[in-house]
Structure formats: C-alpha cells, structure tokens
Write a protein that binds this DNA or RNA. Structure first.
Lengths: 343, 343
DNA sequence: ATATAAATTTTACGCGCGATAAATTTTTAG
DNA sequence: CTAAAAATTTATCGCGCGTAAAATTTATAT
C-alpha cells in the first residue's frame, strides 16, 4: 500500500483512472464491469486500500447487505454454535450479519426488532423466544422485514421455518429406551419456554400409545431459561418423594437433563445402563456439554449443520425473490440418536 | 400513532411545528432544547413514531454512537453472560453495541477488527484471544479506535485494561485446599490459549513457595478452545498412569475442571471432601455450569459484575476524553471463593 | 467495413441528516 | 422594564455514495 490516504470513491476513481459510477458498479458486483477495467481497479486497490463508506452505501442502496440473526438465549452454547455457523455463511456470500440475543426476555426481543428495523436489513434469521414472544409484534415485524424463522416455529409467522423434527427426536429415544429396558417417563417443565417442548411431549404420548404403553409425564415448576437449575430442583423434589413407575427418564431437553443428572449425583442415585445403575436418563438436543455430564448423556442430536445451512439458503432465496414467498414452507430435519453412558 | 408515515426529519419537524435543526438537536440530546419545545416534539413523536435514519446520522456525525464488543469465544457461556452485561450498559446510556465473537480463531479476530473500523465506533470493548492474537494488528487497531481491553490483558495495548486479579483466585483456592487438607497440584494446558492461565500458574508457584510446599504442575496436551475435551483427555491420561503426589487438584479454569470431573466419574474416582472421596478438585472462574458438575465445583468466582461495570465506565471516560488517556490503567478485581462439594 | 449491441463515461440529481453562521425570537436577570 | 443571555429559525453547505438518462467508446457479429 502506498502512503496517500483516500477519502472517498471520487478520489479513488481518479487514481484508478476509472469513472466513479463504474467504480461504484465494481464494488456492488465486480463481475458487472469489463475484465480490463476490473483489473485496473484491483490494481489501484492493492496500492491504496480504499473501502467504500458503509453508511453512505446503506443510506443510498435500496436493499442493504445487512442480515440480522436473532437467538433467544446466547448463554446457551447450542445457540452460540448455531449463530456462529449462520454468521459464517452470511459473510461468505458477502453479507454483514449482526447477532442479537433476546436473553429469554420479551422486552429484549421487542427491542431487537426495533433495532433491526432501523438497520433496514435485507433479511433476518430469527429464532423466537416462543411462549414469551409477543407474537403479534413478531408478525408485524415479519411483514416489514423478510424473515426466516428457525429452531422455534411460530405457526404462520415469517416467510419460512427451518428446524428439527421433534417427533423424530422423541420417537428414537423412546424406541431405544423401551427396546433396551423399561419405557421412559417424560420429564419436562410445567410451562416450557419453547414450542418444541410441547411437540416433544405430544410425540412422547403418541409413541407410547403406539407401543401400547402407559405414558407418564412429570412436569416440574420453574420459569425462564435457567433450565439446568429447573431440572435440578425438579429432580431433587421428584426423586426425593415419588416412587417412579419405571427406571427410565426422558428429559425434554439436554439442559434439563444436565440439572437432572446433577441431582441424581447428589442424591447418590447411580445413572446408566449397567446392572449397578438404578436409573437411565436420556434426552434431546445433543448440547455441547452433553459429552461431559456424569455419566455422559445419551441424547438425540439436532442436525444443526443442516438446519443452519438450510436456514441461510432459504433466506437468500427469499431475498432474491424480493422478500416474499408464495407459500410459507416448513423444513424439518431428522434427529440422530447418540448413545452414551446415561442410558 | 396516526396513519401518516414520516419520511425524514424535515417532515417530522414540519408536523411538530419545530425547525429541523432544533429537532436534530433534540435527538442528539433531548436536554439541550427548552422543555417546552421538548414537550412539543415528544407529543408529535407519540403521534407519528418517527426515528432518524441511522445511516445518515452515522455518516454525518463526527463520532458515532456505535460500540463494538469483542469476545474470544461466545460458545463459552461465561463470555455470553459478560457480553450481555456489557450490551445492556451500553444501551442504557444511549449507545448501539454490536457483539462479535472471535471463536478462538485469529483470522476471525482480524476480520472483526476490519469490520469494526468501517463501523467507525466511538469505542470498543475488546477481550482478545490472547496467545492466538496478532498483537501488532491489535495494537494498530487500538491506535485507530479507542479501545478498552478486558478479561485478557495484552501488555501495553489499548488505552486501559479491566479484568480479574489472577493471584487472588489462586491464592484463595491454594490456601483453602492446603488449610483443609493436602496442598494442590496445578492442572493446566501445556500451551494455554489465554494469558490469564500463565498468571495463574505463576501465582500457584508463588503461593506454594510462600507456604513452603513443593509445587506440582501437570500440563496436558491440546490446543484451541475446547477446554472441556482437553481437560477430560488430560485427566484420563494422567489419572490412568501417574501416581499423584497429593490428593488435591487445582484446575487452571472451570472448563478444564468440567472435563476433569467427567474423567473422574468415568474412572470411578470419587471426588469431594468426604472421607469416602479419594480426590478433591477445585478450580477458578465460577463458570455458569460449575453448579451442575458432579460433584458441584468449588471454585474462585470472578466479580464479573464489577469487571463489566468498570469496563463500560472506563470506555465512556475514554470516549469523553477524546479517545486517549494520558496513562494506561490496569484495574483488577478480586476473586471470591465459592465452596461447593468438589473440594 | 458496417451495423448493432454492450460497456463505459459524463452529467446530474437525490438520499437524510449534521454542522454552522447569521438573523430572530424568547427567556432570564438586574 | 430593559439589556443580556439563551434558544430557535432560516439558510446553506457537505457527507459519500447510488442511480438514472444521455452521450460516447468499445466489442461483437454480419
């Protein structure tokens, strides 16, 4: 790079010997200019490293290159990993993602939508809180900004939904537990934060009926997103008082299971498949920490590579379609059973 | 809100009956206009919900209201919590934070700095990767953008550093372990990602010398930010082969400890303070998951309320000082020992 | 070589707001 | 009640770029 600092596109155009509008075209799409001029611009670029002012660009472009990514709870490593994945994809195709976390609070989710509106994003990848979401506000938002929902579906809202097939999670875990031992009891929060939880309970009930077995659902108290704490307290209460009808527990999700296992350990209840174990515990999600629980957690894994890939693909199709789809599509990916030591 | 959509400040000014420059002043600082005109503007604001175009603002303002927040690894809930805290503070005082994660990779950390430059932020709160950072590039960045480093110190870089006093972590855990039983062995990564790890090892050696005890440091293989995995594999190897000189382990950080405890469980090694336990394990950080390990983890907690508060305060002082401090300050907060079941 | 299409340049304007200076009005102090 | 101070209005410029229409050059085909 040479010494002279370039202030704007005008100056850069002068140096490269190309007119400013053509340089502007180049930055919006390098392949839209003749290869000879492209070469001249890129030569000048190596000499003087100039970058167009992002604010001026966004002010004038009809459609920005901004993408919003919203997750419900970033302190959950599962969402952090997905968000990272989504960010990467967006950057690769030349967009500027911005990451937001609702942190379990409706107020924050609303504020985020407010922020996003003023960013005039080309599109938004949105994993809503679920039960705590202000659905009519999200619906309004989606009618203003091209949005693909992921992870957590809000019926009819957004141009598309990409997530995991909750039935495939529960059917595999229930089938496995039943086949290899006693049928499971379903362990969940009384008022789950997330619609996936409801679908998983329904799937459990269906599976048990299909297998001709009596379902048992344990619902524990607790609100919010501190699932581990809720699972732990619930387990301490249940395991201390009730006599369980079978020796297998299926937690609605891994974070509850992490709490459940910590309670088992504290109560001296041996969990696992061995003969010395008195309880088997399985779960759903394959949380990043599921390999480090004691014992390691048998769980059904999200195909979150596919979920995030498809979410981004869908969003870019949406953007190219002008922000609207004719029909709202729902894409669900199958879970994969991961056998570890807890069941 | 009424029906008419407002396109720009001109239109809004006309409706509110105030001149545009005064409206502009209001949005930059509501207290800078007479209370009677403020009331008129706010009345109009309730009728027509207008918001100034963020891009036009940032293009023209000498100093934007953007704040960059950079953490090394967002999939670590510890950083997610801190980031949330920082974001909240920034928003409260009218700034617009944007969150970035380097995800353990130098390449990403560099790209983030690149993005941040074009955002022309008023200031940046930066927790660098540490060993994997390109220090000279970070130094360049800090000379362009007012930056406060936090969590992980790079000597002499940035206008200030706010973090935790590593000595106070280790001194408390070492003192406690020694007082209540055998002195600890220090367990860490061979090539730690973070400078805090080195300071903690040094603190351990100092404390042991001060107490007149023989230090023992176990360094396990592994690179990157998958600390749990590294701790687990290291523990499996060490516990399987070596005869430990004492029955107490002090892990450099909680994520290593999480892996260590999972290895202990798998090997059937009982961890805790009871007479039936053969090993005590303590650690540093008070990770959000430390309460759910088996057994729950005795650890020294960051005062991360204070760290995040002070980081933000320092940054705003820096911004008000025009982006430069006369002297670079380092602020360290003391740890607090949290006694749980593992030691 | 000529006609035609494609790419580029020129010219001109607009985006929405911050900033500033001078003129005017309103408020405050004496 | 008057002078000074403070706030507002008016007027105008500039920020850095996108975009569109018209004029011109260059490439492609006949």
């Amino acid at each position: 790079m040479s010494g002279t600092k370039i202030r704007n596109m005008e100056e850069f155009a002068a140096i490269s010997g190309i007119s400013r509008p053509t340089v502007s075209k180049y930055f919006n799409d390098p392949s839209s200019v003749r290869s000879s001029t492209r070469a001249r611009i890129e030569a000048a670029l190596e000499e003087h490293d100039y970058r167009p002012n992002i604010f001026a660009i966004n002010q004038n472009r009809k459609l920005t290159k901004n993408i919003g990514i919203v997750v419900p709870y970033l302190a959950d490593p599962f969402f952090a990993e997905i968000a990272r994945n989504l960010e990467e994809h967006c950057i690769q195709v030349g967009y500027r993602p911005t990451l937001y976390s609702s942190h379990g609070e409706q107020k924050l989710e609303l504020e985020i939508m407010d922020s996003l509106r003023s960013l005039r994003p080309a599109g938004v990848l949105f994993a809503p809180l679920g039960r705590a979401s202000n659905k009519s506000e999200i619906e309004k938002f989606c009618s203003d900004v091209p949005t693909v929902l992921f992870d957590s579906n809000l019926e009819g809202i957004g141009e598309a939904f990409v997530g995991s097939d909750n039935f495939s999670f529960v059917s595999q875990t229930v089938e496995y537990l039943t086949r290899t031992g006693e049928p499971p009891i379903f362990f969940e929060m009384k008022t789950p934060a997330n619609p996936n939880a409801n679908k998983r309970r329904i799937a459990y009930l269906q599976m048990m009926e299909r297998l001709g077995l009596d379902p048992h659902v344990i619902k524990v108290d607790g609100q919010g997103w501190a699932f581990e704490e809720i699972g732990r307290n619930g387990a301490l209460k249940v395991l201390g008082t009730e006599k369980l009808p079978t020796n297998a527990i299926l937690c609605s999700n891994d974070r509850l299971a992490i709490g459940f296992l910590s309670a088992c350990y504290e109560l001296g209840i041996k969990v696992g498949r061995g003969a010395d174990a008195s309880l088997r515990v399985a779960s759903n999600d394959d949380h990043p920490f599921a390999r480090f629980t004691c014992p390691s957690l048998t769980t059904a894994a999200h195909d979150y590579e596919s979920v995030s890939n498809r979410s981004v693909e869908t969003l870019f199709q949406l953007i190219e379609s002008g922000g609207r789809f004719k029909d709202r599509t729902e894409t669900l990916f199958q879970a994969r059973l991961i056998l570890r030591d807890s069941a």
